[in-house]
């Protein structure tokens, strides 16, 4: 597999790469595609990103849609732009940093496992786990980044998440969550410190 390294500051029109590493600042005006994309610096992409594996330790700002098999974010990833409807699609998303999906953006993945923060209008998939970190820095960021519109998945586990709607089969609502509406059709666990305004669905309540 051919490896391409981008150091320094450069602008590209887009393209297809096998293994692309960005250590500097890369501004891309077109569609970008790579089998492996690793970002330790900054990537600004004006159009769509298609990648097999996406590993972001730096900052990535994708203004179009993003489609990958696996995403690993320890830095910051933003998909979409305000007043648009962008999509972030992946088989697996692991986040120890921050992911935001601006506008009416949708994150769709089989597994979403976040110990950092995710901010999106809609998060859907098979299993969604969001457990916000408790460091002072991340607590400060949480006031801006940990809100979600709708979460829908077969299995959902949340800690310190604010959401308008949560729909799922097996749901675990952890500490300090604030949920407007929750619909559960299987097993439901709610932590005493969580606040849920409305609960519906044919579920079995289990004490945490």
């Amino acid at each position: 597999m051919q490896k391409t390294d981008f150091d320094g500051i450069l602008s590209i029109a887009g393209g297809t790469y096998e293994h692309l590493t960005i250590d500097g600042i890369c501004n891309c005006s077109g569609n970008l595609s790579a089998q492996i994309l690793e970002i330790a610096g900054i990537l600004n992409c004006d159009k769509n990103l298609d990648a097999g594996t996406f590993d972001c330790d730096g900052i990535a700002n994708i203004k179009g849609n993003m489609r990958t098999e696996r995403i690993d974010v320890d830095g910051y990833l933003n998909v979409g732009r305000k007043l648009t409807s962008s999509k972030l699609e992946a088989n697996e998303i692991r986040c120890r940093g921050i992911i935001t999906c601006l506008g009416s953006g949708e994150i769709n993945a089989d597994l979403i496992d976040a110990e950092g923060y995710i901010n999106a209008s809609e998060i859907v998939g098979e299993k969604v786990i969001i457990k916000s970190q408790t460091s002072i820095l991340m607590k400060w960021l949480a006031s801006r980044f940990s809100k979600v519109g709708t979460i829908e998945a077969t299995t959902i586990e949340l800690t310190e998440v604010t959401a308008k709607v949560v729909n799922g089969h097996d749901i675990m609502i952890g500490e300090n969550c604030v949920i407007d509406k929750l619909d559960c059709s299987g097993r439901l666990v709610i932590h005493p410190t969580a606040t849920i305004k409305e609960i519906t669905g044919d579920h079995v309540r289990v004490t945490s």
Binding site: G125, E126, V165
Partner: peptide, 28 residues
């Protein structure tokens, strides 16, 4: 399940335009 529905949407087995969002008494 929700997971199957959204996986099939992601895999383009179910067209995105078939997901019609509308305001309702219970929200969207």
């Amino acid at each position: 399940s929700y997971g199957q529905l959204y996986r099939w949407k992601r895999e383009r087995l179910i067209p995105e335009e078939w997901f019609v969002k509308r305001s309702a008494v219970t929200g969207q």
